[in-house]
Amino acid sequence: MIDRKPSPLVGGATEAFVHERASATPGNPVLEATSSADDAQAQPPLVASVDRLQSWFAASVTHPGLLSKGVLADGLLSRLDELERVVTRGPRLGALERLGVYHYGYRARLVECLADDYPAVQFALGDDAFEALCHAYVERYPSRSPSLNAYGQHMATLLATRAPAGDADAAPLAFLAELATLEWALVEVLHAAAAPVLSLETLQATPPDAWPAARLPRAETVRLLRFDYPVNAYFQAWRTDQAPAIPEPASSATVVYRHDLMLWRLDLTPAMTALLAGLFGGETLGDALTHIEREVHDADELAEAERSVMIWFREWVAGGVFAGIELPPSEGATEVN
């Protein structure tokens, strides 16, 4: 259900969603000791350039299957028993087990990053299915950036294009893609630059006859999201430990924004959505207001919209939703915050 109260703070603050990279190694499964070095038959080291060794190493430890297949994947080695020509066994573990720390760590680190970005998707899917999803993600979207801050940006795309296991899975995948869109919007808003926003004083100082031609662009720290499922209601129920079930389809819209360092989620009525979408799309306030009449056919809702539109604006402006107000040049002003 959409909360039709014009309260801007539906959903409350969201404080998580920062993935921290560390120089640590993910904890590994405990490995059984293998034969000691005394048993080893000395093999001459394989002579290869640094570049060649690194290509082999990367192909091995990023291999999505068994490491024993990964070490043979790029052709440097043709047989597993040649492995010690490249990396040595240790005092307690063989060469393959030792290399396995990197093979395990590669995926574990990236899965941990995605779990930090998508805790609600993880809850909705369950841990095992989420991990399988993340493994597919890591395979399809290897990182090419020094930072992990934007690593998770493709999750909604992956979910939307992922072949469902059967007809029964199709609806949950569509829902999960929308849930991922909401969670990624929170990450984006957290990392967005804070810039001056339209103030209540400026809004109130704008003469009424200038309003129809005014434009109110979106602030950098704001995202308007439209869904086929009640995504934010699900997210809020998860946040408050209500263990929600996957919902049935029902249109919803949510605006996500950062204000005073807090992240907020506000559910929108269809009238609010039509108005904000028009404004964020660059229309004048006059044009954007006409969307309400075109898209809202319920007489009661239309009447409430007419009564409440000024209240909405005051609350949106208080939340820092608009970057400023732009007036036509003929009005003698350009952009004011």
Binding site: R21, S23, T25, S55, A58, V61, Y106, R109, P142, S145
Partner: peptide, 11 residues
């Protein structure tokens, strides 16, 4: 990493 891919590990 190599070939533009970052493993985010210290290899």
């Amino acid at each position: 990493g190599i070939a533009g891919r970052n493993t985010h590990d210290l290899l």
